[in-house]
Amino acid sequence: MTKAKKSLVCWALLSPFLLVVLFPYATMLSTSLKQKDEIFTFHRTWLPRELYLGNFAELIFEKGFGRALANSLAISVGATVLSLAVAIPAAYALTRMRVPGKGALTNYLLITQMISPIVLIVGLFRMFAYFGLVNSLLSVIIAHSAFFMAFAVWMLQSYFATIPKDLEEAAWIDGAGRFSAFIRVFLPLCLPGIVVTAIFTFVNSWNEYAMSLTLLRQVTQQTAPVQIAFLTGTLYQIEWHLIMAATLLASVPVAIVFASIQRYLIGGMALGGVK
């Protein structure tokens, strides 16, 4: 079988699944470009009447969706920074030093990964309420960091392990202190791994729903996914054209970023996380 023929077969076999994956995107795109009267009519078509961008404008300028995006961005950046800030030293210690109780620690992190935040959501809510942090973006940043950190530690660990130890040792002998060797030699070498981990954490935080829903109870603080879901909860006619425009805005940039690290996930994370 030639490669061309094989390609045809492969694509044909994959096509049903690909169709299902892409169907919602087509829906988002088509609907977000339609005007309201095009949706609530009997004769509907895939193609919008014209390339109408008014939905996006209305969303941002009238519905305050810009603020939801800003909230999401603030939370995701905050959670990424915080979880990397704690995960990098931990992963460094776990790969480079003799850590007492290392096995127990690894198992503990693993188990925290398995516990969904929702199982603990009541406890989480009460804890942040106690500290007066409910309705503060900070609460979600902290919660996201705690739940996404273990994965970051694993991913970083598997990257860190690929950096030969004698590079740092050489730096020490050359006169670099431990910190300086870390900054000048170690960090530049694992930057790609850190970037991939950061993106992964960012995307996870951007997409998280349950904690944001529970901990942020005012409309002005909603994140993008929460607000989108919130918009479907109205008693009146649901404004699908706006909602689809919102999902498009909130998902496409993130999907592109995510696609850019896809190939690292297959080799690195799957195996790193599994081991």
Partner: peptide, 24 residues
């Protein structure tokens, strides 16, 4: 390209996926 498309649902919030499908 095929790999990217297959992995695409992972990149999107479950909440938004649910919303879109609810409309679909």
């Amino acid at each position: 390209i095929a790999r990217t498309i297959v992995l695409l649902p992972w990149a999107i919030s479950l909440a938004m996926t649910a919303v879109v499908w609810r409309y679909v």
